[in-house]
Amino acid sequence: MSAHPNGSAGGAIDNAIDVAGLTKTYGSGRGARTVRALDGLDLTAPHGSVLGLLGPNGAGKSTTVKILATLSRPDSGTARVAGHDVVRDPAAVRRAIGYVAQRPVTDPMGTGRENLVLAGRLQGLGARDARQRADELLERFGVAHAAGRLVKTWSGGMARKLDVAVGLVHRPQVLFLDEPTTGLDPEARAAMWSEIERMALGDGMTILLTTHYLEEADRLADRVVIVDAGRVVATGTPDALKDELRGDGVTVDLGDDVAAASAAAVAARVPGVVDVAADGPTLRARADAGATALPALLAALDAAGLGVRAAGLSRPTLDDVYLRHTGRSMAAAHRASAGVEAEEVAA
């Protein structure tokens, strides 16, 4: 491991990514409505760790990654990647990072091998090194059989693997993966997860991964940062975040939103049931002792004349963590952001 040239920069030496007080506002030309994408975001990722940036669409995940990858400039705040300031020394940051955007980063009219070799050479590898590294990555990601075919003929899962391979071609110190599995079928997603796990273990690279899949963050990330409306609302290891929530998760399916809202009012009065929220047609709550609280809750709902379709107890999930910190489930946040987009289109 080479010495860090900016080792004098205090605490930054221990962290591959160091972000403090980042703000970014987008002004939309017409209508003069400004959108505050980041509102004082802080995060750090130690060398060699996998940091999961979790949040619904519009939470500020992609904006954060774009600033860290030197594509976009923050309005205020500081960000250092691999010891270099992204605003003052973007060239040094660019040499140290790999960036896999949310959209495909490969050229569909080039073959898989051509894409990798060109990316390697643009990153400074010599012609032979680039070819060797391309073959190595094609093999490692299990797409060597398609290496000579134009990428436009590749399946979505294979093309996404190639995107990640392109980000890795120059062995970056820090890799940004912006929603690496969005749009993939479950099988391709599972394959991508294994790849990312292997990368994290083998290469000693720092990975920042954005996702709106809770199970993805749970499985891959050493530490999770939950972002909502441009701010960090919770941070910690997935287990620590879940452990903060005592007891069991209670879910009751009431069939429709109105019934769920009425049920929430009833449930709040049942002893031992806390953190009650209606999430669409589902009632969500927590209970210290689920096995005794659930029958009491069902009896109360029955007494109130509310029909129950299904009910269950679960160990806390990251979704419960998210609900706890933002007051809504990820699914509800997605519905809300989809609603806002529809409204903007209609306006």
Partner: peptide, 16 residues
Amino acid sequence: QDMERGVMDRFLASPT
């Protein structure tokens, strides 16, 4: 075409 995909952004985030 490069901007519609993430190709342009990848170039701009690299030493290109």
